[in-house]
Nucleic acid binder design. Structure first.
Lengths: 148, 148
DNA sequence: AGACAATTATTGACAATGCAACTAATGAAT
DNA sequence: ATTCATTAGTTGCATTGTCAATAATTGTCT
């Protein structure tokens, strides 16, 4: 009879937290060194690159980035200053603004996606087979869905 | 034949990252409101509470917290000022210091563990059965091990 | 023993982020 | 149409964390 240590929700969460934190830091370093952008910037550019017309309202952006709106404002300020995105007033709601990926942003993103994709594969993907990767995806998704 | 969308390592990592980020923020809010400490403080106190003699060298602490040493110095400064931990010079290596859990820190930790444990159960554990929790633990551990 | 490299922790300067307060615009109710 | 609550975004201030440089101590090599 195999001896199995009891794994509590606390253990499970704790391991998820440390693993994700470590990897994130690693990915951030790679991106910074090879493309000159942080993982947070990457996240912004990625979402914009998939958004319709490569643009998102500040509000949506801040939600998907898990940042406060003010945090998003500051972040977009910096990336805009670097020329990778720009702002445009929203025609349909004059309170709002769009953050829009610039051509330069797209170019940076092409390089970054390659580098970062390889990095994820090397540090994360290569240690799990495809079923396991699916499991991680589905379990994490289930937790996320369970929290609204 | 069930149609399954292909899940890449990138999808899997992305979901893990957002789920963990969201939960962490939620946990942080709860701890802050109910015990008056952040999730980071909690992490420090937790590790100290399990460490031999409830003390750890700054170096070890910073590693397990995924923080730079200078970040750990600042963090320990603040928690020390709050009276939850204290510093003590290391006898065996006069360059070093221990961070040590105080009695007050232990008291705070007793309350925090209960609150935070419940929170983890409610937001994470309740959405996964015990096998799934074990899976998350083992998969995340495998990734962590694969990265040194 | 003496010289030099490596390690531990801290500090100053600065970057990033949250909170609360604010402005401008929208929408809903009368 | 006017009023009032709500929403989008930005800003000032405080907090938190990083990076590079520093001081003190230890270890190594001859």
């Amino acid at each position: 009879m195999p001896e199995k240590k009891k794994i509590t929700a606390i253990d499970s969460w704790g391991q998820a937290l440390t693993t994700v934190s470590r990897l994130l830091r690693k990915f951030d370093t790679t991106l910074q060194e090879s493309v000159g952008i942080s993982a947070v910037w990457y996240d912004v550019l990625l979402r914009l690159s998939y958004a319709p017309n490569r643009r998102m309202r500040m509000q949506n952006l801040s939600e998907s980035l898990i940042l406060t709106r003010s945090g998003a404002t500051r972040l977009v300020d910096r990336i805009e200053k670097a020329g990778l995105i720009c702002r445009e007033a929203a025609a349909e709601d004059r309170r709002g603004y769009y953050a829009i990926l610039t051509d330069e942003g797209r170019a940076v993103m092409r390089r970054a996606k390659k580098i970062h994709g390889d990095d994820i594969l090397a540090s994360f993907g290569s240690h799990l087979d495809s079923d396991e990767q699916r499991l991680v995806y589905e379990l994490m998704r289930k937790v996320a869905d369970g929290n609204g």
